[in-house]
Design a protein around this nucleic acid. Structure first.
Lengths: 146, 146
DNA sequence: AAAATAAAATACTATTTTATCTTTTATTAG
DNA sequence: CTAATAAAAGATAAAATAGTATTTTATTTT
């Protein structure tokens, strides 16, 4: 469904958010250790998100990634769009170039419902909510390490 | 969502079905012309589906692909599984190796609902239904050519 | 039997995605 | 001002997906 880049990006941003709340900045290494993601690849994703002003960063000692309070209501949708674009929310399920209610593919209506359900989910969830779930221990960003 | 191979495969099988009903066998060239898909690539997909006994084929003059009546109740789900496997129906939305109700990622429950909705759609739709929609003109397998 | 046809199999190419490594630039602590 | 630190940028590599071309095999028509 989501690309690997998007999966890592979401996990990273949720973690950054949960720590920014405490005023901490995080290095890529720390982030990747926590969310179990490849370091250099995740760095690229975060750099792209920084250019898009979704996360902030500072270089040098004590530098790292953080998220501005102003982004408190950032929706999961905004993040997915920033990384994967919106092909997931626009394209035809069977790949037709033109597919609409007036010239539908055989699963147009049903697929549209699924896709809209997904969009609704992503629009509803804010990064704040997601980070809170992790902070409260209700949800996790990595597999159990035993 | 689906891979290109899967998109072409679904369109091809629906078209083959709609013609098999009339007793016609179809060559790859004809199929690809109708569904606007790359010829050699689609051929490979169909050959794989033939090995999996989802479509049938005969070589030589008047040969081609067709679908056995016994496959009348073939579900879209079976086709998607045969081409893309079931990663779409099993994996975690955020890519966690282990993600379950007891150790959930932050979108586990909501994502599960979306995924199950999709699975339900694919299990409900039979190839017969989809082909009928195309035959009756209610749905289309290619963009409008004006 | 020979020629024609069409799928099957194999090999090859291109593009995109994922991942890693190296160099550069900015910032801060000493 | 110099070291050290950490992100930014760029270059490269590996893997997966998408797409094309060629050869082989089976079947049918003449």
């Amino acid at each position: 469904m989501f690309s690997k880049a998007c999966e890592y990006g979401i996990r990273a941003v949720i973690y950054i958010w949960s720590q920014s709340k405490k005023g901490n900045k995080l290095g890529v290494k720390d982030i990747c250790k926590e969310i179990d993601a490849p370091e250099y690849f995740t760095a690229k994703i975060l750099q792209s998100l920084a250019r898009q002003n979704i996360v902030s960063s500072t270089k040098g000692p004590n530098g790292g990634f953080y998220i501005d309070i102003a982004q408190e209501n950032l929706r999961l949708m905004d993040l997915v769009r920033a990384i994967d674009g919106d092909k997931l929310f626009t394209g035809c399920g069977l790949g037709l170039k033109q597919c609409s209610a007036s010239n539908p593919c055989p699963i147009h209506h049903e697929y549209k419902a699924i896709r809209e359900g997904l969009a609704e989910l992503l629009k509803t969830k804010t990064l704040r909510e997601l980070a809170d779930e992790v902070l409260s221990g209700k949800a996790s960003l990595h597999s159990i390490v035993s």
